[in-house]
Simulated scan of single mutants.
Amino acid sequence: MYKIMTPGPTNVRENVRLARSMATTNPDVDSAFCEFYKETCDLLAGLLHTKNRMYILGGEGILGLEAACASLTERGDRVLVIDNGVFGRGFADFVTMYGGETVSFVSDYHRPVDIAALEEFLKKDSAFKYATVVHCDTPSGVLNPIKEICRLLASYGIITVVDSVAGMFGEYVNIDESQIDILCGGSQKALSAPPGLTLLWVSDKAMAAMESRKTPIASYYANILAFKTYYEDKWFPYTMPISDIYGLRAAVDNVLADKDILKRHAAIAAATRKAVVAGGLSLFLEDGFAGTVTVVAVPEGLTDKQILNTMKEQYNVMISGSFDSMAGKVVRIGHMGENANAADMAITLRALTQALQDLGFPVQCSMDEAFQQALAEGTISKSI
């Protein structure tokens, strides 16, 4: 059995697995489930500091990205795509799929979006219905300042769509303070439930834009409006995956009980970065490091597959490479949710040290020991 330390899906706690095995009712007709669903949504809204509507959709997190674009976009709408990562650029595919016209603001993939440069861009062109941005772009691990970005966009009257699938619950998110109109999340990252659910937080402004469309939304499954009156009508647009939602609720309860979750993510991430640099490796990013994933440049003379396969086959630890324009350039270590703990990270970094030594790379220290030392020197105990 491999130790899975990829940037999602994450390990799942036993109480989440047990919740998914509970006896189920008929979610289509049992009003008690509708109340349970609404209560879970309200808890998730509270965790991200918003009074906006919150919905849980049956489908992996990418459904939320498509649903946001499907529900907002009409043919000919101009949409700003903020592109400083693979997923950031990828939003354009959803926009064009539904007839929108994209304009890209492209910035360096090695650092977060430059707010001043974005503001200069908007001074020249701000005629956009909405804009898209990724909070944590996991192929590179960059973390974008969504509060500053979205408040700037809102000042120009632009609706904001944020992908925080790999950011939320590992990084602080305040939807109302940040003026985010649609926030997209997933169950399988720092929330540490199995994959299969999309989480959506939707503002009144975004809902009004959907309702004022001149043409129908060109999707049924990706139609956010279909959920608007579910609670008043006690009716869902399709049969909800009840076992998945039971598991999600247990994961939400775990997060609610974990008062140090953000502090722990920050400490584990900082210690991991310090350890890999001490070992003689290079980080891909120059700035804007996420608390949920560390992205390491593949050393010259090696390939990502050599590192990944050696760790998996010889040391039973699975990390991941990247893809698209990042393919072959980096390896990625996930430390989000249940994976953000000192014991698992020490094992992972020891496996990375040994794999690199096996491949002939001159590792400068035992990275697990460097990691533990970095934690001990910080503000959080290495026993976390």
Rank of each mutant, 00 (worst) to 15 (best):
K3G: 00
P7C: 10
P9Q: 09
E14I: 10
T25C: 13
F36P: 02
L43P: 00
G46W: 01
L47P: 00
L47Q: 11
Y55I: 09
I62F: 11
L63Y: 08
A70E: 08
R78C: 09
L80N: 02
G90N: 15
A92C: 04
M97Q: 15
E119Q: 15
E120R: 15
L122G: 08
K124W: 00
K129M: 09
K129R: 14
K129L: 13
A131W: 03
P139S: 06
L143D: 01
I146K: 07
E148V: 01
R151N: 15
L152H: 04
S155L: 05
Y156A: 09
D163A: 08
V173D: 01
D176Q: 12
D176N: 13
C184E: 01
A193D: 12
A193T: 02
P195S: 15
M207F: 11
K214T: 13
A218Q: 15
A222I: 01
N223P: 03
L225M: 14
L225R: 13
K234P: 01
W235Y: 12
F236E: 07
I242V: 14
I242Y: 01
S243P: 00
D244I: 00
L248K: 01
L256P: 02
I268V: 15
R273Q: 12
V276K: 03
G279W: 07
S282D: 14
L283H: 04
L283P: 04
E286Q: 14
D287N: 14
G288K: 09
G291C: 11
V295A: 10
E300Y: 03
K305F: 04
V317A: 07
G328Y: 08
G328I: 07
V331L: 11
G334C: 07
G337W: 03
N339P: 05
N339Q: 13
D344Y: 04
I347L: 15
Q357M: 10
L359P: 01
V363S: 10
M367T: 06
E369L: 13
T379P: 00
K382G: 02
